[in-house]
Each structure stands twice: as structure tokens, then as C-alpha cells.
């Protein structure tokens, strides 16, 4: 099928099978669709910004410390994820596993703090029913958090496959693709903390 795999002998492992190459390209295109998905949630958020219907305001609830912690957890996890792929290209299965587990732990920490944050807000009277603004907030952040959670389960599954089969063109492509997903989610978070928290905490809109 298609091009001769031997011409890719010098490429990183994840590019050495045709399935791997096609899957990687296909996933980049899927990320283009995800950019649009999140942009629609952002558009909704901006249009509904400030429409709190006389209820509790975001500036009253947002906590800068919490946001900084969550941001750094995710940022560091993106770094450890990058190192995991670097280790993969060095051919070190052990390196991949260790740095990936670190990534997942940091991600789980992020999700944990986010769940705590959501419970706290609901307790303070800001839930998805309260007003259009809070609906937009919870769905934007919740969609991102759900993506991260799904990613944790997905990458755990891939780790099991690495344990069983080691680093092959197929398993390498899976690690690479899941790393693309993970980095992408950090990119989305950059826009979330800018558009939601910095604007909210700084009273910029």
C-alpha cells in the first residue's frame, strides 16, 4: 500500500509505518477541527460575558493562586510530555514510560483542582443554571477539563500497550499522536486563562 516504507528508515519511529504517517496527518487535521470547536465555545463565552442576571460575579469567585497552580501544572505536564517524545526518539522505552507517567500525574492534579474549583463555585451560588455567563463558563472550562480527563485514560491505555509491545512503529505513532493531543490542550488552556481568568481578575471587559 502506497509508498515504500524503507525510504523512511532514517525517520523517527512513529513515521516508519504508512499507518503511522496517515494517522499522524489525520490527527493534525482533527486538531484543526478541535480549534474550531473551542473557538465556538470562546465566541459563546465572549458574547455572554457579563450576562450574570444579577447573580454572583466571576471577579468575586476567581482565585489567582488557584489559577496559577492549575496553569503551571498543565504547562509542566506539556514539558514532560515533550520530553517523553524526546525519549521515544532516543529509543528509550523506560524514558517514555517515566516521563509519560509524570505527565499523567500532573494532568490528574490539574483535573483535581478544577473539580474542586467547580464544587466551590457551585457552593457559592454560581452553577450552570445561574446565568448565561456561568453556563458559558462551565461549558468552556468543562469541555477542556473533559478533554484532559479523556486524554489521561487514553494515554494510560497506550502505556499498557507500550508495556506489552515495546516501542514499535505503531506504538510510537500512538504516543506521538496522544502527545499532540496533550500539547493542544495546553494551548487551549493558555487561551482560557487569558480570556477567562485574566480578563475576569483584571476587570478588563
Amino acid at each position: 500500500m502506497g509508498h515504500n516504507d524503507s525510504s523512511y528508515a532514517n525517520a523517527p519511529l512513529e513515521y516508519q509505518s504508512e499507518t503511522g504517517r496517515l494517522n499522524i496527518l489525520g490527527f493534525w487535521i482533527f486538531l484543526g477541527a478541535e480549534i474550531v470547536l473551542f473557538s465556538t465555545l470562546f465566541a459563546t463565552y465572549f458574547v455572554l460575558h457579563g450576562r450574570t442576571a444579577g447573580g454572583v460575579l466571576p471577579a468575586e469567585l476567581f482565585d489567582m493562586k488557584l489559577v496559577l497552580i492549575m496553569t503551571f501544572l498543565l504547562l509542566v505536564s506539556s514539558f514532560t510530555c515533550g520530553i517523553a517524545v524526546h525519549e521515544m526518539r532516543r529509543g528509550s522505552t523506560k524514558g517514555v514510560v517515566i516521563w509519560t507517567i509524570l505527565t499523567l500525574l500532573l494532568g490528574a492534579g490539574f483535573v483535581g483542582f478544577e473539580i474542586f474549583e467547580f464544587f466551590h463555585y457551585v457552593h457559592e451560588g454560581a452553577s450552570i443554571h445561574t446565568s448565561a455567563y456561568w453556563s458559558a463558563f462551565f461549558v468552556l472550562l468543562g469541555t477542556h477539563g473533559l478533554h484532559v480527563s479523556i486524554g489521561i485514560f487514553w494515554i494510560t491505555g497506550v502505556l499498557f500497550q507500550i508495556k506489552k509491545r515495546g516501542l514499535t512503529p505503531q506504538t510510537a505513532a500512538k504516543i506521538f499522536i496522544s502527545s499532540l493531543y496533550w500539547h493542544f490542550l495546553d494551548v487551549v488552556w493558555i487561551f482560557i486563562f487569558t480570556a477567562v481568568y485574566l480578563i475576569g481578575l483584571g476587570g478588563l471587559l
Binding site: I29, L31, S39, F42, T44
Partner: peptide, 26 residues
């Protein structure tokens, strides 16, 4: 990779749409 140009173009078009949807809606 050999798909680098497609990958970049794809992402740029995604960003183009994102900016239009957000700024247009606002």
C-alpha cells in the same frame, strides 16, 4: 515530516476560522 506544509496550513486555516467566529460574533 513530508506533511509539514499541510499541517501548518491546516492549523492556520483553523486559526483563521477561529478569529472570524470570535470577532465576528462579538
Amino acid at each position: 515530516s513530508e506533511n509539514g506544509t499541510v499541517q501548518v496550513g491546516n492549523t492556520l486555516f483553523g486559526l483563521f476560522c477561529a478569529i472570524i467566529f470570535v470577532i465576528g460574533s462579538v
